[in-house]
Write a protein that binds this DNA or RNA. Structure first.
Lengths: 258, 258
DNA sequence: CGGATGATTGAGAAGTCTCAACCGTGGTGG
DNA sequence: CCACCACGGTTGAGACTTCTCAATCATCCG
């Protein structure tokens, strides 16, 4: 279970990025039991409409949440990197309309809802930390709505690359200037609401202008500032700002220290 | 404060639609204190990036959450009808990247975070109900991503009208066949990622095909089935399904009864 | 070597945007 | 009470982005 521990530790790190938890609470998170499962690329981790009794922690690989259209088209609406509990909200809403799919070969840890509910019941600060994670998800989704609704193809792609770069860097899995992002151009198209053909041309544009290079699913951002400018990227919506909160004390950290 | 009570009651109804709360918990929600404020159309209820110490309950009117682009373009990513606490997540994330704007003349009740935190600390079931509300928001946002990313103009508008119809009907503020929706075509455009001109033509199309009629911001849906079909509308994502949950018992209602 | 998958290219079609004008209505000031 | 103004809805024409379809190329793997 060594690898399970490593993944739980990543998950805890993610929680601690936005919420303060004390030693007991951290221990409780690390004490979660889980069952590892591996998924091949393009296989469903959770099928649309499925009712689940566990949440999925991405231990290795890359997963995405998606919405399926009647004509078979697909729209991705989130990427889940290592340490993300992609299904955390299923604790309170066990039947979701969306599905979760493995982008690359992906190992997930299935954590029983019963255990998560127990945590939430025993530690109010964890309940609020989980709620805060959900709010972060919503904030990212809202940004995606704007990105897809109001930006052209080039900016959409640039924005997605900026987001993934910052998230991966924050999670300690790479840097914003070089990270591993194992998606096909067709997947990218499904994420930004474009066609694979058009994504191809726009990526050529970004490469041609010297903003990025791509080598076998490694993204090298050679000119971060220009990429961020093309994307109108402002990381505030990732809610990584200073306001880390301690909920048992019912006070923001800053207020508590003062 | 009679009108404040009415609004809190609508908010409680909304919570009870997806979560089971006992008499104490209901009483606690209804006992929230609040300060009413009125906003004229197109005025910010919450400005982008603002840090707030209260949440906003829409008591009368219509509000929308939005993302502002650098060139002044705007993308709406949610509508908030009467009884919606549009800012509930600000309890755990007081600084949001988005703004909230009044669509029509709107009265909101500002509820201090301190009170909401107290509720959440005292009643675990309320904490989970709030988390569940946030999850619902995220589910709707995810659907919007798909709607904007993967559907054409006509379907996007049809989907928005279906969503608002069902939400308004569920909230008891109208029916899906006739409801009040006080937005300009320009607002609609900002919601579905189109141009006001194109929204105009598409609305003419929906009217011309006999699906809807519009009269001074009243929407009459004359052919719901066709509208839903044009939209590929499936209300599951609104999470209004049967699975109402009682969280103190840590069991879904169905399981508890069984 | 053969086959599969993903990236790339080209050309024409379609959907949506832009700009500019005009119309209808409700509110306002003289 | 009326003229005027502002705003929102409507229309037209041309431009531009993105899509569609189909073919070719490159790489990986058995």
């Amino acid at each position: 279970m060594a690898s399970n521990q490593a993944a739980l530790s990543r998950f805890l790190d993610r929680l601690l990025r936005r919420s303060m938890l004390n030693a007991d609470e951290c221990g409780a998170v690390l004490g979660l039991t889980s069952h590892a499962r591996q998924f091949r690329p393009n296989f469903d981790i959770v099928s649309p409409g499925e009712t689940v009794d566990h949440s999925c922690l991405v231990a290795h690989g890359l997963a995405a949440r998606y919405d399926q259209m009647a004509d078979g088209q697909r729209q991705l609406n989130a990427f889940h990197i290592e340490g993300d509990m992609c299904d955390l909200h299923s604790v309170v809403c066990p039947t979701a309309a969306w599905g979760i799919i493995a982008m690359t070969t992906t190992t997930v840890l299935q954590v029983p809802h019963a255990e998560l509910r127990k945590l939430v019941g025993e530690y109010p600060a964890i309940a609020l930390a989980f709620w805060r994670e959900g709010t972060t998800e919503a904030s990212i989704l809202a940004k995606w709505v704007g990105n897809i609704g109001r930006r052209d193809a080039r900016a959409r792609l640039a924005h997605l690359l900026c987001e993934m770069g910052v998230r991966i860097e924050t999670a300690g899995l790479g840097t914003r200037n070089h990270f591993w992002f194992d998606v096909t151009q067709s997947n990218l198209a499904d994420a930004v609401g474009l066609t694979a053909v058009h994504v191809n041309r726009m990526m050529q544009g970004l490469r041609g202008d010297g903003l990025i290079r791509t080598m076998s699913h490694n993204i090298y951002v050679d000119d971060w500032d220009s990429l961020a400018e093309a994307a109108e990227f402002d990381p505030d919506y990732l809610l990584l700002g200073s306001g880390k909160m301690r909920d048992s004390g019912q006070q923001p950290l800053a207020a508590k220290i003062a």
